[in-house]
Amino acid sequence: MPTVRDPLDPKTSMWYFLAFYLRFLRERAGLSLTQCGSVIGIARSTVSNMEAGRQRPHDDWMVKLDKKYDTGQLLQVLLWFARMAHDPDWGRQLLKYEEEAISTKSFHAQVVPLALQTEDYTRACVRASKFKDLDGTMARRTARKTAYLDRGDAVLTWAVIDEAVLARLVGGPEVMKGQLEHLLVMSELPHVSLRVVPFSSGAHMGADGSLQIIGLEDRDIAYSGAQNGGRLIESPGEVRELSVMFDRIGVKAAPEEASREIIKAYLERLA
Score class of each variant (00 low, 15 high):
Pro255Gln: 06
Asp66Pro: 06
Gly206Leu: 01
Phe81Trp: 11
Glu181Leu: 13
Arg240Asn: 08
Ala226Ser: 12
Tyr266Glu: 05
Leu75Asp: 00
Tyr21Glu: 15
Leu216Thr: 07
Val39His: 04
Leu65Arg: 02
Arg240Lys: 15
Glu241Gly: 14
Leu18Trp: 02
Gly237Met: 09
Val251Leu: 14
Ala159Leu: 09
Val77Ala: 14
Met186Val: 11
Leu184Trp: 04
Asp220Cys: 12
Ser224Lys: 12
Pro10Met: 07
Val39Trp: 03
Ala82Cys: 09
Gln55Asp: 05
Arg23Tyr: 06
His191Cys: 07
Ser201Arg: 07
Ser106Asp: 12
Ser187Gly: 13
Pro198Arg: 06
Val197Ser: 03
Ser106Val: 10
Arg141Met: 07
Ala254Asn: 04
Leu22Pro: 00
Tyr21Trp: 12
Asp9Met: 08
Leu78Val: 07
Asp220Asn: 13
Asp247Trp: 03
Gln55Leu: 15
Arg127Ser: 12
Leu169Glu: 06
Met176His: 08
Ala226Trp: 03
Met186Phe: 01
Ala258Tyr: 09
Tyr21Pro: 05
Val63Ile: 15
Gly229Gln: 01
Trp80Phe: 10
Val112Leu: 05
Pro173Ala: 01
Glu99Asp: 14
Ile233Asp: 00
Leu74Gly: 00
Gly171Arg: 00
Val47Glu: 03
Pro173His: 04
Met1Gln: 08
Val47His: 03
Trp158Tyr: 11
Gln76Val: 09
Ala222Cys: 05
Phe246Lys: 02
Pro2Asn: 11
Val175Trp: 03
Trp61Gly: 02
Leu18Cys: 10
Ile102Cys: 13
Leu65His: 00
Thr122Ala: 10
Val160Lys: 01
His58Ile: 11
Arg240Thr: 15
Phe107Lys: 02
Arg240Cys: 12
Leu189Arg: 15
Gly178Ala: 07
Asp6Met: 13
Ala265His: 13
Leu183Thr: 02
Ser32Ile: 07
Asp89Phe: 11
Glu98Tyr: 01
Phe24Ile: 15
Phe199His: 15
Pro88Leu: 09
Val4Glu: 10
Thr142Phe: 08
Gln93Gly: 05
Gln93Thr: 14
Gly206His: 01
Asp6Arg: 15
Thr146Ile: 14
Glu238Trp: 04
His204Ser: 04
Ile213Tyr: 00
Glu217Asn: 13
His86Phe: 15
Phe107Arg: 00
Asp60Gln: 14
Ser129Thr: 10
Leu267Phe: 08
Leu194Val: 04
Glu98Asn: 10
Glu51Gln: 11
Leu114Gln: 10
Gly172Ile: 03
Leu189Trp: 02
Val175Glu: 01
Ser106Leu: 12
Lys68His: 10
Tyr97Gly: 02
Arg56Val: 14
Pro173Trp: 00
Gln117Glu: 07
Leu183Cys: 08
Phe81Asp: 08
Tyr16Asp: 12
Arg26Tyr: 05
Ala164Glu: 07
Ser235Cys: 12
Arg195Asn: 06
Arg123Lys: 14
Ala207Ser: 15
Phe107His: 04
Lys177Met: 07
Gly178Tyr: 02
Leu156Val: 11
Ala207Glu: 10
Asp150Gln: 15
Leu270Asp: 02
Ala159Lys: 00
Asp120Val: 08
Gln110Phe: 06
Ile233Pro: 00
Ala109Trp: 02
Val160Met: 09
Lys105Thr: 11
Glu119Asp: 15
